[in-house]
Every structure is written in C-alpha cells, then in structure tokens.
Amino acid sequence: METGFTLSNTIAAILTIGIISFLWKDNPLYKLCESLFVGVSAGYWFVSLYYQNLLPKLFDTLGLTQLFTSADIEPGAIQILINEGRVDNSFLYLIAGILGALMLTRLIPNLGWISRWPLAFIVGTTSGLYFTTYFQSNAMAQLRSTILPLDSIGNVVIVIGTVCGLVYFYFSKEHKGVMGGAARVGVWFLMITFGASFGYTVMSRMSLLIGRFDFIFSTWLGLTG
C-alpha cells in the first residue's frame, strides 16, 4: 500500500476518522459516513451478485448474454434451440429467473403477496438443506466427538460440560435434584463459554481498531516506523 497523503489514503483516513468521531458524540460527519457506508455496501452486493451469480448462472445459462455480446461463452439454451433445434434442460433456469423477478414484486404494494412464492422456495430449500447438514455437522458430529475416553482432565471436562450443558437446555423435566445440579454445572460451563467468546470477540475487534490506527498514524501520516 502507498504511504503518505495520496488521494486514496486521504479519503480512507477521513472516512475512518468520521466513523471514530462517534466516540465523541453522534455528529454530522459520523452520520454522513454511516449513510455512505450503507449505500456503498448495498451497491457492492448489488454489483457482486450480478457478476458472480446472476450473470453466470442465469443469463449465460439461458443464452441471454450471448445474444447481446460477443464474449467467448458456451452456448446457452437459446443458442441450442436456434442452432440444434432442441429444447435444452437449461431452459429450466427460466423458472428460477421468473421466481427471482417475482421476488421484486415486494416493491409494488398491491402485488407484494406474490413474493411469497420465491420466499417459500428459499424457505423450503434452506429447510431441506439444513435438516440434513445441521443434523450431521452440529448434532451427530459433535456428539461423536464428545464420546471420549475419560483418561485426562481435559476429556473429563469436555464430557461433563457438554452433558450438563445439554441438561440445562432440556426443559421437559423440572430442574430439580440431580437434573437441577447438572443444569447448574451446565450454566457454569455456558458462562465460561460466553466469557471466552466475549474475550475472543473483543480482541478481534481490538486488532481491527489497531489496524485502523496503524493506517492513520503510519500509512497516512507517516508518524511511526
């Protein structure tokens, strides 16, 4: 990265200071940077998803791109129909395109209900996909990894902590007696987990903050090494 008062560094530094200025108080510069961030984020995903997703998966597959450009792309459904006279399976992607376009009807108040169809499709695919993958990766794989020989303190801690944590999440029986004791131990483990996760998150944010300060003082102002 270039150092010093270049145009790009100055833009980045002003925006960084603008966001940090919120620590002083909510001010116009922060609001300006915040609004800019919202707009640029939306624009970033708008462009990225077009080129990474819609263009190759929808427009190229259907052959729409090939109709309007001379890019070196494999023939799509329309080209196959014109050149070979057969209806290719790629035409099925038209359904996805229509469902996607129906999603945009949410912007039209009277037709908004139509967007439930593509939404239902997304909910259905996500449910079906997660049903198996989460059962495998979260439930079964974690259970398998917890069945450990109790030959070290670490393994004992993992087995007891996991079992007691699960007991705490089991609400079909009142937490009294042995269940109550186990649930209480479970809470202790969960608290340690939340504390550790908190510490880890704070440190990662701190490293981001150090990165920004390093940019301002070292890259932009050139004050340090």
Partner: peptide
C-alpha cells in the same frame, strides 16, 4: 476444554432446534 464443552452443548442444541424447525416448515 471448558469453552469447547459449552460450545458443543450449544451447537447440539442448535442442530436439534434447526432439525425440528425445518421439519415443521416442510
């Protein structure tokens, strides 16, 4: 160790929760 144990309890809970919610949706 302790963090891993807590994470596992949470992940198993999330996994079972997602399975039941998915089934209800389907």
């Amino acid at each position: 160790y302790p963090n891993m144990a807590g994470q596992r309890a949470i992940m198993i809970g999330i996994g079972l929760g997602i399975v039941s919610t998915s089934l209800r949706l389907i």
